[in-house]
Computed example of a mutant assay.
Amino acid sequence: MSYLELANVSYTYPNGFEAVRDVSLKVELGESVAIIGQNGAGKTTTVKLMNGLLKPTQGEVLVEGRSAKGATTAEISRSVGYVFQNPDDQIFQETIYKEIAYGLVSQKLTKELIQQRVVEVAALCGLAESLKEHPYNLPYSKRKFVTIAAVIAMDPQVIILDEPTAGQDRQSTELLGQIIDQLAQKGKSVITITHDMEFVASQFKRVIVFANKAKRKDGSPEQIFWDEQLLKLANLKQPYICQLAKLLGKTGVMTIEELLERSFK
Rank of each mutant, 00 (worst) to 15 (best):
P139F: 02
A184Y: 04
Q107T: 08
V83I: 03
I208D: 12
Y136K: 08
E120F: 04
Y3E: 10
L113V: 12
T45L: 02
P139M: 02
K250E: 01
D89S: 14
N51Q: 06
V9M: 14
A150D: 15
E163N: 07
Q185I: 04
Y102L: 10
L161Y: 04
K246T: 02
Y13G: 05
I208R: 10
K232D: 11
L138M: 14
A122K: 09
C125R: 07
I35Y: 01
L49Q: 00
M197D: 07
E120R: 00
K205Q: 10
E18A: 10
N39K: 06
N212M: 13
K217M: 14
V118R: 07
C242V: 03
I180A: 01
G16L: 11
E31H: 04
D162Q: 08
G103S: 04
N51H: 03
Q178Y: 04
G103N: 03
E28R: 12
A7C: 13
L29T: 14
V33L: 00
E129T: 09
S10R: 01
V23M: 12
A7R: 15
K250S: 00
A41R: 01
I160E: 11
L49E: 01
V146M: 09
I179K: 06
R21I: 06
G16F: 02
P239L: 00
L244E: 10
Q223P: 10
V33C: 01
